[in-house]
Amino acid sequence: MSGATEGVLVERLSAWYGRVQALKEVDMDVPPNRVTAVIGPSGCGKSTLIRCFNRMHETISAARVCGKVILNGVDIYSPEVDPVQIRRSVGMVFQRPNPFPTMSIFDNVAAGIKLTRFHRGSELAESVERSLRRAALWDEVKDKLKDSGVALSGGQQQRLCIARALAVDPGVLLMDEPCSALDPIASYKIEELITELRGDYTIVIVTHNMQQASRVADHTAFMLAGEDGIGKLVEFGETKQVFTNPRDKRTEDYITGRFG
C-alpha cells in the first residue's frame, strides 16, 4: 500500500464562515500512519478543522482560512497549490454515507481512479477489488458489483465510501463522524476497519463518541468553543494520556461528562 510517510502539520490555523469565525489558531502535529481522533461538543469546530485538511472548507461560499496546513512538506494553502490536487491525495468519508446514487458499486469505487489517472480496464478492476477488500466489503458485494450502491445497508454504504476514498491511494484519510448515522453493529465494523487500516494511512477521525475515540485512536485532540463561540484546540496528546491524565481542567470536565 502507499503508506503515508508524513502526517499533517497544522500551524496557527483559523477558519471563517463569512464573518463568523469557527476556528482560532489551531496548532497540531498529526503523526503519520496513526489514528488521531478529534473530540469535543457540537459546534467546537472539529468538522471544520478536518475540512481544512483537504481544502473542502472553501467549497462553502464565503468560507475562508488563514494559517498553514503542511502535507508532505507542502503548505496546501500556498497560492500555487491546486485544491483539486490536494483532494486527490487526501481521502474523506462523511457523516452520512453518500455513495453516488446513479453509479453501480463498482463505478462508485472506480470514480476517483477514473478522475485521477489514466487506467486500463483490467487495472481498474484490480484496484476496485483491492479497495473493496481493504474496506472489508468485498465478500459482501463481489457478486453484485453492477448493482446500485444505494441498495446496500447504511453500514455497507459507509464502507463503500471508505473503499471509494482508498481507491486513489491517499496518504491521509479524513473521517467526519463516520458512524453517527449507523447502528452499533455497523459502527463496530467501521471501528474494526479503522484499526486494520492503521499503520498504512494517517487517519483523522472526528467523533462525538468518546468511547470510540478511546478505542480506535492513538492520539486524541480535544476541541472546545470559547465564550466567543470560536473553536480552539484545548489539548492534544496520546489518547491514553488525554483520557486518564488530562493536562487541562476543561478536558477533564468534558471526558468525565460534566458538560457537552
Partner: peptide, 29 residues
Amino acid sequence: VPDDFRHASYALGATRWQTIRAVTVPAAA
C-alpha cells in the same frame, strides 16, 4: 440533488465540471 453527493465528488478531487457531468446531472436525470 443533495449536497452530500457534490461534496463526495469534490473530496475525490473532481473539478466542478467533472462533478456536474458525472454526479449532479446524472442524479437529476
